[in-house]
């Protein structure tokens, strides 16, 4: 039973990790590429880490929870780095498929 659950978690985790990177390689502008790694990859690695916690908890007959730490850390840091990257890209005026909004209240507003 745990074997099936474990296999399922590992497969979904690996599949999501792959899909995240596929999005990174396949999509056409920076801002759309940002979505794959922030969401799909994070959930994928989260699934793998939970699988690891389950595996060691069953094998050693004691609860192994330190994987939860890395999972939490990843889920907290992924949106932060995504936000910073998007901000840097807007600052550098990276090519975008969507219309870039007018930037209000910026300390150093670039001249159009």
């Amino acid at each position: 039973m745990t074997d099936i659950l474990l296999s399922l978690l590992i497969l979904t985790g690996a599949a999501f990790t792959f899909i995240g990177s596929l999005g990174l390689a396949r999509l056409r502008d920076f801002y759309t590429r940002l979505h794959g790694p922030t969401k799909a990859t994070t959930l994928g690695v989260g699934c793998l880490l939970i699988a690891s916690a389950l595996y060691f908890s069953v094998r050693d007959e004691g609860i192994s929870l330190h994987e939860v730490l890395v999972t939490l850390f990843l889920f907290i840091t992924a949106p932060v780095s995504a936000h910073l990257l998007a901000k840097a890209a807007l600052h550098l005026r990276v090519k975008s498929l969507a219309a870039v909004p007018r930037q209000r209240g910026e300390p150093h507003e670039p001249a159009e």
């Binding site: 995240g20 990177s21 940002l34 790694p37 990257l85 840097a88 890209a89 550098l92």
Partner: peptide, 11 residues
Amino acid sequence: DAPDRILALDT
């Protein structure tokens, strides 16, 4: 662009 490369490193 540079942000693309950083995103790739992050991934």
